[in-house]
Design a protein around this nucleic acid. Structure first.
Lengths: 223, 223
DNA sequence: ACCTGAACACCGTTCAAGT
DNA sequence: ACCTGAACACCGTTCAAGT
């Protein structure tokens, strides 16, 4: 409405913080929180920082690089309890990892293709290895086991993260419908199991799943 | 070079097969095979079928719908052995599922966000439930277990599918580098486990992982 | 009913030109 | 060295107009 008829001088313009890699990642997370992953584009983030998309390329290699950085930043919040039995600490840690991913299913999806070896991810890996070691799991089983332990929360989150995601909700309802309508002749076992297949809250399935994985890792020797 | 100076008449033009949903899915798979997932776009597929992108929307709701359809089509090749012990048949089936996904990591990645409840997916579900039942696994454990059994191959394929994928290969090498360079003070367990973490062929890790999951599912009661 | 071209509203990334 | 605007080469999806 009251647009000035000349460009603002440097003194008058609101101070624009300098671009940094961290600032770009933070802006990316802000957009993610506010508008979801599909709005996390170079152009949108640049707008957030009051600049052009091209300017970001001084600090960020490409979109994949940015996404990996964002994921690692989110993992900063995943920390273990300091006391307690190794098993409860491990389950808690994995549930907290899952919680972060459930809040950001799009990032969970991304983390399958765009890996991070950022400091927070490595710390998480280290903590899990430590806990498995405490539980007496042989080192070679633990080393391959971490991968499996991190995979399942990621998968569950990607599959049905809680963020309002019309497409995904519809897909799952779709599966439920197909399972309910399964022809007992062509799909006898699906028809027999019925609701059981799609039953349970994500939290309940996660908890059981984590136990399954830990039991399996503990009890399965490597050839 | 020798372009005709008038449009070809209907008789002269090479016969153009009519558009069908199946034809569009097949064209999508052809493009996937030839040029990779990132080229599987509405426009590219339309070009393949000698038409415009808009024409596809008569048969396909949107990109997600198309992708789900493509995935289900790929699963047609995943079929179980007819004889043998339930355990070896189950392991074989999961390895064959994994093999398909390893050849199409981009589809594996996609299948996390875009679900299919297509006929082939449901058949796979049914077969696995049947085999677990044969193995004496209680029905409620089997019903939640299928999800876990299908998750791990998907995750592994998405993570390091074999198709030439410069970004992914670099990421994994990156992780290996970080693991190798892990500071024994801040990351003691990673440093101790060292190479072990990134060791083994995908096939070997997959086989051990499947065994881990089956053992866990068999031995973990549901509350 | 099916098909089409053109348009709309976007993308990531590069690059020459500025400071 | 950093920043910018403009350009390049794309996207998915919609829609009025044709057959």
């Amino acid at each position: 409405m009251t647009a000035p008829d000349r460009p603002l001088s440097r003194r008058e313009r609101p101070a624009k913080p300098p671009l940094t890699r961290a600032g770009i990642v933070a802006a990316g997370l802000a957009v993610l929180e506010a508008e979801g992953m599909e709005k996390v584009t170079m152009r949108r983030i640049a707008a957030e920082l009051d600049t052009g998309a091209a300017s970001l390329y001084v600090y960020v290699q490409n979109t994949a690089d940015l996404h990996a950085q964002m994921l690692d930043e989110l993992l900063a919040g995943v920390t273990p309890a300091e006391t307690g039995a190794w098993l409860t600490r491990l389950i808690d840690l994995l549930e907290s990892y899952a919680a972060v991913l459930f809040q950001h299913p799009e990032i969970a999806r991304l983390s399958m293709s765009t890996h991070t070896s950022g400091p927070n991810y490595l710390r998480l890996l280290d903590t899990i290895l430590g806990l498995l070691g405490e539980g007496g799991v042989p080192e070679n089983q633990a080393a391959w086991g971490v991968d499996i332990l991190l995979a399942y929360p990621t998968f569950l989150a990607a599959e049905r993260g809680s963020r309002a995601q019309p497409r995904n909700a519809r897909d799952f309802a779709d599966l439920a419908t197909h399972v309910a309508a399964a022809d007992p002749y062509t799909l006898p076992h699906v028809a027999a199991a019925g609701d059981e297949i799609v039953s349970g809250t994500p939290a309940a399935r996660l908890r059981w799943g984590i136990t399954v994985l830990i039991n399996g890792i503990t009890q399965t020797e490597r050839a």
